[in-house]
Amino acid sequence: MALFPDVIVNNETIPSAAIAAEAQNHEAPKDKPGIAWRKAAQALAIRTLLLQEANRRALTSDPLELAPGRVETEDEALIRALLDEALTIPPVTEEDVRAEWARDPDRFRSAPLWDVSHILCACDPRNQDECAAAGTRARAVLARLDGDPKSFAAAARDSDCGSKASGGHLGQLGPGDTVPEFEAPLRSLPEGGMTPEPVLSRHGWHIIRLNATAPAQVLPYEAVRPKIAQALEKAAWARASRDFIEALAEGAQITGASLEPI
């Protein structure tokens, strides 16, 4: 007996090998591989429904170049052509955009900026001996500082980062400008504060000083209007796509897969 039933959409069987390959693209708990299989079966059942409808309408494909070296497949182009023909998306109006912004203007903020200095004791964290030696060195530097930020620039002369030429100063950083393990302590440090313990990143051990911070600011409507309009357009397209697929499914015979959310 097969572990999973065949997936059949309007008398068209989706090969198990295709579902197994698609399952690689879907997350699931390690102890529940069946969830990935069901997600893959659902995705391929929807794809099959759409391709069947495209063929019923005698649509032709015209693959587009999505990015350098990345061109749509014939199936992707057919599905795009189908959705372009079948979906009618009402235009997003100025009133729609302003109403979405007015629901909670506080959601739309600039990113915070941190003015940062650091001292790096470089190492490969995967090398235990090297990591331990660099950690010992970093703790010794931190002990010499003894919480005194004024001596930070002098201590930074021994840093393994090129910023040592400017007293360890890295300039202004925003979210995503550095590795996550370095960014995390910046969010809780007070202005003028240093990390109480060295921080390990993929580059080595850091002693981090937050010189100053510019908090996130609420952005004016005109600055965020394009972003809100784009989000509303995407949401409208997603709703229309979902409704179209549901309508196709209501008139189809599908076994071995469910189109209900998993």
Results as ranks from 00 to 15, higher is better:
R144V: 12
P175I: 01
S117C: 06
L232F: 08
H118V: 12
V141N: 01
L189R: 15
D115G: 04
L142G: 09
Q128I: 09
R103L: 13
M194C: 11
G162N: 12
S117W: 01
L210C: 14
V141G: 05
D146C: 04
G204T: 01
L232Y: 02
G174P: 05
T213P: 00
E197M: 01
A111T: 03
E191F: 00
Q217E: 08
L113H: 13
P198S: 05
H118E: 15
I208W: 00
V141T: 05
H118C: 07
D129M: 07
A223W: 14
A143L: 08
K150F: 04
L145G: 03
L200F: 06
D160T: 06
W114P: 02
A231Q: 04
A247K: 09
L186D: 00
Q128C: 03
P190Y: 02
I207H: 11
C121I: 10
R242D: 13
A111D: 05
I208V: 14
M194G: 07
S117R: 10
S241D: 00
G174K: 14
V141F: 15
Q230H: 14
D124V: 05
D148N: 14
P196D: 06
E183Y: 07
P220Q: 03
I228R: 12
A184G: 02
I245H: 00
S117N: 11
A99L: 13
E191S: 10
P180D: 15
T213Q: 14
W237M: 14
F108Q: 13
N211F: 06
K150Q: 10
L142W: 01
Q172R: 01
I208A: 05
T195I: 02
F152W: 08
P190I: 09
G193N: 07
L142V: 10
A184I: 12
A138F: 07
C161T: 02
L186E: 03
A231I: 03
Q128A: 14
E100Q: 13
Q172G: 13
Q230A: 15
G168L: 12
S151A: 14
D160K: 10
W114L: 07
R126S: 04
S201V: 01
L173W: 11
A122D: 04
L232H: 02
K164C: 01
L113P: 00
R126T: 00
G135C: 15
E100S: 08
A132S: 03
D104L: 12
R137K: 15
E100K: 12
N127M: 12
A138Y: 04
T195P: 04
A153P: 01
I228M: 06
T195E: 05
C131G: 11
T195Y: 10
D124T: 12
G167P: 15
A156W: 09
R109L: 09
C131P: 02
G171A: 11
L173M: 04
I207P: 00
A240Q: 07
A235R: 14
R202F: 08
A154F: 01
S166D: 13
R144F: 14
A134C: 00
A236E: 05
E183T: 11
R209F: 06
L189E: 13
G171K: 10
V141K: 04
C131R: 12
